[in-house]
């Protein structure tokens, strides 16, 4: 198997995992909706007696999925910058540091926040390296814009997760939120509209095709 084929299969596997995780989180949201619908009509006073437990369970189920999603982002976005093995090792180490923070502070929220902060640092590094890796106007090539945009929007997503997990009652909540929003939106625009923003078009033109009997 050539390196190119291996790369493509690895990319595809990461995308499938991402889609599957987004799907399972979606299913969780749907089941949560059905439950809340049933509970508020069937259990008198549910909002005061049962809602707290419901939120706890929903957070507990969502947290591992978000962690895996962030791990996949950590493997996916910088895959052209670093060796795959190094990425897996760094991801594992980050997870261990998060676990250690959880054990040491006896707070899952702190452990998760530490893990997300490390993931944000790595992602910020990826964005910087992507930008710095280019010389002169070549930064504005289509492919480079897509990669930077992708890095930025994933960084924005992680920053938003940090706001939700750790900063809801902090004075830094709003500034962090606006930074997360700016990264997400700027990254999305760069990733989606690289073809229009690009200084120099460098990507292959994809030819439309019939799906026939597939």
């Amino acid at each position: 198997m050539t390196d190119l084929v291996r790369h493509k299969n690895w990319d595809f596997a990461l995308t499938v995992i991402t889609v599957a995780l987004l799907g399972t989180l979606g299913v969780q949201s749907f089941i949560g909706t059905l439950y809340i619908w049933w509970a508020t009509t069937a259990i008198p006073g549910f909002e005061t007696t049962g809602y707290g437990d419901f939120v706890w369970w929903m957070n507990a189920i969502a947290a591992p999925q978000v962690i895996v999603l962030v791990i996949v982002m950590g493997l996916c976005v910088p895959k052209r910058l670093f060796d795959r093995t190094a990425l897996v090792v760094v991801s594992g180490a980050m997870l261990l540091v998060g676990l250690a923070a959880w054990v040491l502070t006896a707070s899952f929220q702190t452990g998760l926040a530490v893990y997300l902060a490390l993931a944000a640092l790595i992602q910020a590094g990826v964005v910087v390296l992507t930008v710095a890796g280019a010389r002169g106007p070549s930064y504005l090539t289509e492919g480079r814009l897509v990669k930077t945009g992708s890095g930025l929007l994933h960084l924005g997503f992680i920053a938003f997760a940090i706001v939700v997990v750790a900063l809801q009652r902090s004075a830094f909540m709003l500034p962090a939120f606006w930074i997360a929003t700016a990264f997400t939106m700027l990254g999305t625009v760069m990733a989606f509209y690289a073809d229009r923003l690009a200084w120099r078009k460098s990507m292959r033109v994809k030819v439309d095709r019939s799906f026939g009997n597939e």
Binding site: F12, T15, T18, V19, L22, G23, L25, G26, S29, F30, G32, T33, I36, W37, E47, Y51, F54, V55, M58, N59, K206, R209
Partner: peptide, 30 residues
């Protein structure tokens, strides 16, 4: 009680599905 409330859940689900769609289409040629 708004976090994980019904409408918020559905909105999150919708966003997740569109995010999944935009990822999945990268491999349309498969």
């Amino acid at each position: 009680s708004w976090w994980w409330s019904g409408k918020v859940n559905m909105s999150i689900m919708m966003w997740l599905l569109y995010t999944a769609l935009l990822h999945a289409r990268l491999y349309l040629r498969r």
